[in-house]
């Protein structure tokens, strides 16, 4: 009976529930948030945020697609996002395009991951290329 439902259908439904004040849990796809979120393995819990800060991982609509990326800069309404696994590509959106903020990450065994390590990763951006190389070899 179960089959894959596309993000374009699911995310608007998540948006409604987040606006109602509920938290939403799902397993994202893609590998752009390596090493902190492993697509199709790790689950994330989102909450509708009242404020944002640099370092937050957010689900947002940017460049006509949905992205689960980290905020790397905030300039008034303008937000710059980047995947942890991306070296130079960034995306732009507005605060109104942010659907939810990641408040928890669970690994495939259901154990919570520490969010603070992701913030540290953000400050290690200059060393990312080499660290990602090592990480991919470890997999």
């Amino acid at each position: 009976m179960p089959h894959k439902v596309h993000n374009e259908i699911l995310i608007p439904e998540m948006d409604i529930l987040l606006r109602e004040g509920k938290d939403v849990r799902f397993t994202p796809t893609g590998f752009s948030m390596r090493p902190f979120i492993e697509g199709e393995k790790d689950a994330v819990v989102l909450r509708r945020p009242s404020t944002f800060r640099v370092g937050d991982i957010v689900l947002a609509s940017a460049n006509n697609q949905y992205l689960l990326h980290r905020i790397i800069a905030i300039n008034g309404e303008h937000i710059t996002l980047q995947g942890d696994g991306n070296l130079s590509v960034t995306e732009q959106c507005r605060t109104a395009d942010i659907i939810g903020t990641v408040i928890q990450i669970y690994n495939a065994d259901g154990k919570p991951k520490r969010l603070t390590r992701g913030r540290l990763w953000f400050y290690l951006r200059p060393c990312r290329r080499i660290l990602l190389k090592i990480y991919r070899k470890l997999l």
Binding site: P2, V5, I9, K22, D23, F26, A43
Partner: peptide
């Protein structure tokens, strides 16, 4: 939504899309 029907377990605080039933 469109042609899709989804059944979601709506808890008091959290909705788990990983347990969604189509």
């Amino acid at each position: 939504i469109g042609d899709e029907w989804m059944l979601l377990a709506v808890g008091a605080e959290q909705v788990n899309f990983d347990r969604m039933i189509t």
